[in-house]
């Protein structure tokens, strides 16, 4: 499934870029994130609770940040699995200065399997959008605080 969208942050691209790579901020803002531990350069182990349709479950996986071009862009690679299935996602985030703030545009591909694919596929698109919005909303609060 392809996902794309954009979000306005009330801070400079440099600040936004730093925030998007700050494990503490990410852990705080990712919906359902229970832990995010650094396991290597730009690589984190993640535990995340996710609910989709009638299913909720704990996903364990990895988050990797690649192709870093501060403060313009980086690639985010997420992989996780749990008892209700697995998910893989890869996305490119582009940051650009706009109206005194920063526009974060994202574009990526999400793939799910197992029970969540069989049951929740139709809800996946809207669920992903809601989760991304919540993430940026929360991150945005942090950004405003910093700005």
């Amino acid at each position: 499934m392809k996902i794309s969208g954009s979000y306005q942050m009330a801070c400079s691209p440099e600040q936004a870029y730093a925030l998007l790579q700050d494990p503490e901020a990410l852990a705080r803002c990712m919906p359902g994130c229970e832990s995010l531990d650094r396991i290597g350069e730009n690589e984190y182990a993640m535990k995340m609770k996710m609910a989709l349709a009638a299913f909720s479950g704990l996903f364990e996986g990895k988050v990797r940040i690649a192709d870093t071009k501060p403060p313009q862009s980086f690639r985010l690679i997420v992989e996780g699995s749990g008892r209700v299935g697995f998910m893989k996602g890869e996305g490119l985030l582009n940051l650009s200065a706009q109206n005194g703030g920063t526009e974060v545009a994202y574009e990526g591909d999400v793939h799910v399997g197992g029970t969540i694919a069989a049951v929740g596929q139709r809800l996946l698109d809207s669920t992903a959008k809601v989760m991304i919005k919540r993430f940026f909303d929360k991150l945005g609060e942090g950004a405003s605080a910093r700005a």
Binding site: H111, G113, A117, A118, V119, Q121, R122
Partner: peptide, 14 residues
């Protein structure tokens, strides 16, 4: 089935 072989109509809901 989607291209990766996931059954999308996997329940009586679908």
């Amino acid at each position: 089935y989607d291209d990766s072989g996931q059954l999308l109509s996997g329940e009586l809901t679908d």
